Amino acid sequence: MANNRNQQLVVQNARAALEQMKFEIAQELGIQLPQDGYYGNMLTRDAGRIGGGITRRLVQMAEQQLAGRY
């Protein structure tokens, strides 16, 4: 996830959890993340796969929480 100043997290403490999720998903997909934090040389396809994995996992977590409420 890019560190963009225009992106505001609703829950500020979620940043560390999202970063951890990014590393977990990249590892599951066999994608090596750059050690220096610069993602400019990363393949767009790989970045999209990681972002898609994060989105799928977040949707799954939300669905589980909603299912528990009703």
Rank of each mutant, 00 (worst) to 15 (best):
I54N: 02
N13H: 06
Q20D: 08
N41T: 01
V10Q: 15
R69Q: 09
L29P: 02
F23L: 03
D36K: 13
G48Y: 05
G37I: 06
D36C: 12
Y38M: 11
G48F: 04
Q60T: 14
Y70A: 04
A14N: 09
P34N: 05
R56W: 02
V10P: 02
V59Y: 15
D46L: 04
G68M: 08
L33D: 03
D36H: 14
N3C: 04
V59D: 06
G40Q: 10
K22C: 10
M1K: 03
E24Y: 04
L58Q: 09
Y38N: 15
R49P: 03
Q8T: 10
Y70T: 01
A67L: 13
Y39E: 05
L66Q: 14
A17V: 07
E24G: 01
V59K: 15
Q27W: 02
R45L: 04
G48Q: 11
N41R: 10
E19G: 02
G48M: 06
V10E: 14
I31C: 05
G37A: 09
L18R: 00
A16M: 03
N41W: 02
Y39V: 12
R49D: 04
M21Q: 08
M1R: 04
L58N: 05
Q32H: 09
A16Q: 07
N13I: 04
V11Y: 09
D36Y: 13
Q64H: 14
I50S: 01
R49Y: 03
G37K: 13
V10N: 09
A62H: 08
L58W: 01
M42V: 06
Q64D: 14
G51Q: 09
Q64K: 12
